[in-house]
Design a protein around this nucleic acid. Structure first.
Lengths: 395, 395
DNA sequence: TTGTACGCGTTATCAG
DNA sequence: CTGATAACGCGTACAA
């Protein structure tokens, strides 16, 4: 907690100029003798470079921020596990913000970009307001948004495709002979909530199933809310033979309720979650879930940001990560895990199956299909290998 | 992404001096007319204060960091949920670091304190090396350590009491008639791992049970490792009627294995976890767990840090949070949750039960019991109310 | 009340 | 190869 020595202190001590000290500390060509003296002095004094002063001059902090809606959601965990190493390898330190999806806090973080504490930001907002868009547009450091933003927004963007994801799930359930497929969704005023609601209706229609408001329940994206919603739905509607859940947490809540109600999963009610978090594989019964590629999205976002940091003037890019259905016991019966079903395979049209090149992004020919007007390059992310869990655990 | 305007830009635009701009921006007494002009110019130009430059001068950043070993462990989540609001209320922004318990990274974060990017740091290291201690001692900003450090270390410190915690659990199991109590621990070279190993032996001894290496297994603090360890233990040793687990994740892994092995919980094998994370309440069967007061520790740490920020010269303080046993279905049978058992009640000696004063710290008389030599004030934290989950959820 | 000038700790430029 | 010195953007004595 002592007053820290500066390069001036060192310069005095070593009997050289501050310029020489700076040179030595930055590894610039210097006479051996000088190097020795400076390093010795620095060591003795316990010198630590003042990064604030350095940043004032260099306009760089070598820090990057990731602002997530809720640190408690495993989805973000998966993202962090991918973002961290990519950025670290490039010499950046990652700092995390948990905004609790409070718009004011997110705007605050965005604003803090202007304060120059970080060189860039990856953000995953639940709701995208006009204020978000305005602040992003005038932000003084590069921003990458994970999640859908309105078409035409000039910002690097990584998207999931929950529309296709929901369809994969519904098709799967339909294929199992389920016809009364209930839907447990999150808030409709969030981007994913709205998207999944629309996708559900659409998917039912495609399969010739009627849309019945009576078997749809809207709550929050949490386990407890999922349980509440499931209970409400079961109390109200009879004969539901499947539950499509807008994320894994909701699905886990539903499993709790079904178990308590004495209903067998999947015999009586099949359950599908979304996000394919660690919890899905670990639950009982294990949970069939639509992976929206959290890991891939995190990795893509980090790479997008690095890329941007190296070229501030390039056109904004859009990366879309395709969903993958992972079938587990909650729909498949005896706990046997079947092979994942990718979007390409599952869709009737068989829209050109992707040929993954591990660890990189595959650029499609020309601008993205839904962004033609903006002239942005669109790319599709391919699967990354799972991030290893760190050693250690808890205090 | 434009080049940001500075107070100079504003000064020109408003036709005043930079000093006036600074005064207005900091709310110092200024003529109305000047205020108006400056604010107008600032608004037009979209001015954002350069916090880096400000910090260079003021030596404050209004940012505080929390470095956790693993962002994926719910224990840290509980801490963050408490730390965040306390710091926010005091005007600090919280930034999070996930070190993956890599010593080099933790040292790096500690070092970054010297870099002046944050005004203070709360850290929860899994292992405490000499390098940690050395770096902490010379750190240029206040540090609060969550977790045990060697006695005599001059640093604000918040501790759990896992020794008593383990005893609560063993006593509970013993009281249920269990006599072959296996132990699934984390790495012995971590502080909590070592403490819990010792506590386990001690607690058995107190109850007159033999220590049998054959029913002890050491792994990592993760679910998958917990499962592996449980499997190994069950393969090797027969007749185990209870499993004490060093944390909840390990316990969940054990539950998976027991279930797969067709063993009933708690009839055949009772299971106790540690940390009392959200997962404990949500698992099936729900998990009896020893709460080590993650939330309380987080809150106490935040308050300790704020306190220190306001008085850099005060003596280091030690806060110890007492453990609480939370009994659930994994030991109690039919899912009925019994009342929590606090340390005071459970111990035979009945060491003066605490009288909680909500939301504050209760100071014990004089120096802490195991710190008498250092002359530090010791306090005991009391329960805080659970932090509410934020609205929203996942993209 | 307002403006000038200096310092915070670094890096970078330019003579020597 | 080295040493003075000018920024970087802001806060603030001190002078006007």
């Amino acid at each position: 907690m002592a007053e820290g020595p500066t390069i001036n202190t060192i310069a005095e001590r070593a009997g050289v100029s501050i310029a020489s000290v700076s040179r030595v500390l930055n590894g610039l060509p210097t006479r051996q003798e000088t190097v020795r003296k400076v390093l010795a002095a620095a060591e003795e004094l316990g010198y630590v470079r003042n990064a604030v002063a350095r940043s004032l001059k260099s306009r760089r902090t070598n820090q990057v921020a990731f602002a997530m809606a809720d640190i408690g959601n495993p989805v973000y965990l998966a993202m962090v596990r991918q973002i961290q190493p990519v950025l670290k390898a490039a010499g950046y330190r990652l700092v995390l913000h948990s905004t609790d999806a409070i718009v004011a806090d997110e705007i605050d973080v965005l604003h803090s970009l202007g304060e120059r504490y970080v060189d860039g930001l990856i953000m995953s907002p639940l709701r995208v307001t006009d204020e978000h868009l305005k602040t992003i547009a005038t932000a003084r450091a590069p921003v990458v948004i994970i999640g859908s933003v309105p078409d035409g927004t000039r910002v690097d963007n990584v998207r999931a495709d929950s529309r296709t994801g929901v369809r994969l799930a519904i098709d799967h359930l339909h294929g199992l002979g389920r016809r009364r497929i209930g839907f447990l969704n999150g808030p409709l005023d969030t981007v994913p909530g709205a998207a999944r609601a629309a996708a559900y209706r659409e998917a039912l229609k495609e399969r010739g199933l009627p849309y019945d408001e009576g078997i749809v329940e809207v709550g929050d994206f949490y386990r407890a809310e999922g349980a509440r919603a499931a209970r409400a739905l079961l109390d109200r509607a009879a004969g539901v033979d499947a539950l499509m859940c807008a994320n894994d947490l909701i699905a886990l809540g539903a499993l709790d309720v079904l178990r308590a109600a004495g209903l067998r999963v999947p015999e009586d009610v099949a359950v599908v979650g979304m996000d394919d978090t660690d919890l899905a594989a670990a639950s009982w019964p294990s949970l069939t879930s639509v992976s929206l590629g959290s890991a891939e999205r995190g990795k893509a976002a980090a790479e997008l940001l690095l890329d941007r940091l190296n070229d501030m003037d390039r056109e904004p890019r859009l990366v879309t990560v395709p969903p993958v259905l992972v079938v587990r016991a909650s729909t498949a019966g005896e706990g046997a895990e079947r092979r994942p079903v990718s979007a390409g395979q599952a869709l009737s049209a068989g829209g050109e199956a992707s040929t993954p090149r591990a660890g990189s992004l595959r650029r499609t020919t020309g601008p993205g299909p839904d962004r033609e007007s903006t002239g942005e390059a669109a790319v599709t992310a391919v699967p990354v290998q799972a991030a290893p869990q760190p050693k250690g655990g808890t205090p």
